[in-house]
């Protein structure tokens, strides 16, 4: 089980539109169909960056990045590796 993924779920609970699904939703399930909207994705992004101490590049800030917990995990892991700090 990915530690990054679990931490994403913890952060998701802070958001009204995601708190109800944060624990139970499958890692590959479509978050946009489960209540995510563009403003929530922006707020979640800012919170995740703060939590993990990384800054995602503009090209990573797409709808696909926030498609699923798995997609967010991959993007964050890549950035954590790039910046040389490991959260898990």
């Amino acid at each position: 089980m990915s530690c990054v993924q679990e931490q994403i779920r913890v952060v998701m609970k802070e958001f009204a539109k995601l708190s109800g699904i944060a624990d139970g939703i499958a890692e590959g399930a479509d978050l946009w169909e489960a209540g995510m909207d563009s403003l929530t994705s922006v707020q979640l992004l800012l919170r995740l960056e703060d939590y993990f101490g990384v800054e995602l590049p503009d090209e990573a800030l797409t709808r696909e990045t926030f498609r699923s917990i798995r997609a967010m995990t991959e993007v964050l892991r890549t950035q954590l590796d790039r910046e040389g700090s490991h959260a898990s």
């Binding site: 563009s38 403003l39 922006v42 992004l45 800012l46 800054e55 590049p57 503009d58 800030l61």
Partner: peptide, 14 residues
């Protein structure tokens, strides 16, 4: 109002 939120994510490298 939407852009007020979206712009918070810009990295200044545009």
């Amino acid at each position: 109002a939407t852009n007020a939120q979206l712009l918070l994510t810009l990295r200044g490298d545009q």
